[in-house]
Simulated scan of single mutants.
Amino acid sequence: MATPDLADAALLAAVADAGGFRAAAERRGASASSISDAVRRLEEACGVRLLNRTTRSVTPTEAGARLLARLRPALAEIEDAFDALGGDEETPTGTLRLNVPTIVARRVLPPIATEFLRRHPGVRMEVVAEDSFVDVLAAGFDAGVRYEERVELDMIAIPIGPRRQRFAAAAAPSYLEARGRPEHPRDVAAHARIGHRFARSGLLPAWEFARGAEVVKVPVEGPLVASALELEIAAAVAGLGLIYTFEDALSDEIAKGALVPVLEEWWLSFTGPLLYYQSRRHMPSPLRAFVDFVKGL
């Protein structure tokens, strides 16, 4: 078996990212035939087909997708190492555009952004906070923050902020006095529920509770469904029903006693947010500085 060539592996990733040989060739300033030859050499060296080729599309095979998932972080680190040569004296300047969920903008990003901007006065940061799932690159952003299940497969993703988070269920004392306290997630079906609908997709997720191997899902039905977390929390504090959302979003009201936690042993735990961006040979200096800063946290 021939030894796979790292340069050929980088061209495989370029084809997968561009969606075809011609588009990859335009981005790389090379010929489509030379890139096709490189991918063919890599497939021969690996002894497995890595790309499905049709007249309309070029997509990774199952083996190719597994290989790319392992290759992309390594290729990004190699690019970072070369780009860092001679870059110690460079002061990053320009605008960094980020798209983040509202909970991240409220609870995760503030201390990170302020310290980063303090260290890099030449950088201007623009942040759009929304809970719809947009194509950040197509929308003109340099990077985005999302949770694991919402990160595109062809992106590089690194943790930002807490490594684990939880959803928390709570209600106002007045509501619990009037309606009683749920002792099991199945009891939630008999209670008023304040739901969150994602504005762009219209998705209204069911509430998911977990304890050990047992998982209970409860559909959302109640007096209020909104796409604004502040409105949902205010409704819960007013005693309109149970709320189930990010623990960080409810912590202030719980600390004040305006909301009372319920079903704590069933709160769903999940991986914290990820900063994600496209691996590019010439990454803008504000984005590169921000990625390096987040990696060092």
Results as ranks from 00 to 15, higher is better:
R197N: 02
S34M: 12
R179Q: 09
S174Y: 01
A169W: 00
R53W: 00
I112N: 02
E26P: 00
A76C: 14
I78T: 10
E44W: 01
R146N: 13
L50Q: 09
V145K: 05
L240T: 03
R288M: 07
V218S: 05
V104D: 12
R186I: 00
L204V: 02
F82P: 00
G161D: 07
V48R: 06
E253K: 15
E208W: 00
V260P: 08
T271C: 05
P73A: 06
A255L: 10
Q278D: 07
E177Y: 04
L275M: 09
A171M: 01
A2V: 10
S33D: 15
L68W: 09
R166K: 07
D248H: 03
L203H: 06
E152C: 04
A235T: 10
E230N: 12
R163E: 10
A81S: 12
D142M: 03
T95W: 02
A76S: 13
I160F: 14
P92N: 09
L259N: 02
V294P: 10
D8H: 11
A105S: 13
P159L: 07
A81E: 05
Y175A: 09
L263W: 08
A235Q: 08
E247D: 15
G29S: 08
V127C: 03
L240Q: 09
A157M: 10
H282D: 13
E79T: 15
S285E: 13
